[in-house]
């Protein structure tokens, strides 16, 4: 991998690097890790923005208009989007660029859609790594777009500086329906589609939300290019606040910790799954289950204890 080219934002090298860090073939790992380590010293923290919202709220249109505005302010921009992979065929349809036509046609923006590939929570297994690649490439702003389905807010909030939730005018139910825990993660709420017939409703919604949450609430119309600058100002203010209160380093520390623990668990799970494939012990338990000798819950508990010991001792042997 050509680090120099990535640092210069060469599109081919950048795109290839993301593919490499996303690869799920263990044979690619050494190369991917070497690349990440090499990029790490160059990765200056970008303005990381998470943007979420229910389907149909106008996320893509908002990001398109917001992104074009950023570019007009001479800021370089990367957008990472995630599309769900089918659980049946494992394939996916990635259509984000069709929803951000002008932004994707602009050479100053880099948009990379990725399939979720079996990872739940609106991100991929390697969204953070892709973020790091983008930061090494020197993008000023990196946006992570995700569909708001509860779990995804938690995951995305754990990797960005500012988490923006888009809602529709009259979408009070959405907010009330959203779990309390998720609202606590939101840094800014934007009532999108505040235009035309919906303008009045948007005003009502905004003042209604103001009563129920403590974060800034803004109105915007991506369609008519209104309220966009204000969103950026709110994001900057949020970051300034974090910095002035000294909360920013702590936030980054916490995010690194979560990143590491998640990656560690992920690694364990992968190894475990490989070990469990064609395992004679597992088959024994399964036949016991099939012949109704033991309940599933009980069998799993016993198997976990037993196999855990075997795997650990095997691991120790390997270490020795």
């Amino acid at each position: 991998m050509n680090v120099e080219k990535i640092l210069k934002q060469d599109r081919r090298a950048l795109a290839r690097a993301i593919t490499l860090v996303e690869s799920q073939n263990p044979e690619h790992y050494p190369q991917a890790f070497a690349l990440l380590d090499a990029l790490l010293p160059h990765a200056k923290r970008a303005v990381r923005i998470g943007i979420s919202g229910a389907p149909g709220v106008g996320k893509s249109t908002f990001i398109e208009v917001f992104g074009l505005w950023l570019i007009a302010q001479n800021k370089s921009l990367a957008v990472l989007t995630v599309d769900p992979s089918s659980t049946q065929s494992q394939g996916s349809v990635l259509g984000d660029k069709t929803r951000m036509q002008n932004l994707s046609a602009d050479k100053r923006a880099f948009i990379r859609p990725s399939p979720s590939s079996g990872k739940l929570g609106g991100v991929t297994f390697a969204t953070r790594e892709a973020l790091l690649v983008c930061e090494a490439a020197g993008f000023d702003v990196v946006i992570i777009e995700t569909v708001g389905v509860g779990q995804s807010e938690i995951t995305v909030a754990s990797m960005v500086d500012t988490f923006v939730l888009l809602v529709q005018p009259g979408g009070g139910d959405e907010l009330q329906g959203a779990k309390k825990g998720i609202l606590e993660l939101v840094d800014i709420i934007v009532v999108n589609k505040a235009d035309g017939d919906l303008k009045k409703l948007a005003n009502q919604s905004a003042s209604q939300y103001l009563r129920s949450v403590k974060v800034p609430i803004l109105k915007a119309s991506a369609l008519h290019n209104q309220g966009i600058q204000e969103v950026w100002q709110a994001i900057e203010k949020h970051r300034d606040n974090l910095k002035q209160t000294g909360a920013f380093p702590e936030k980054i520390k916490q995010q690194n910790k979560q990143w590491f623990l998640e990656a560690l668990t992920e690694n364990f799970l992968k190894k475990l799954k490989a070990d469990l494939k064609n395992n004679a012990e597992v088959d024994n338990y399964l036949s016991a289950i099939d012949s109704c000798e033991i309940s599933v819950a009980h069998a799993a508990f016993l198997a976990c204890n037993r196999l855990g010991k075997i795997f650990l001792s095997r691991g120790r042997e390997r270490l020795n």
Binding site: S85, S89, G91, L94, G95, K97, F110, R112, P115
Partner: peptide, 30 residues
């Protein structure tokens, strides 16, 4: 839709692209 159903990751490009725009998107999406 059929390729996605057959297990491919399928990027659907916007309509009315010029060849240069299409090439760039293919590169970016790798």
């Amino acid at each position: 839709t059929a390729f996605a159903d057959l297990g491919f990751d399928v990027d659907v490009a916007p309509l009315f692209l010029t060849p240069a725009e299409a090439a760039r998107q293919a590169i970016e999406n790798d």
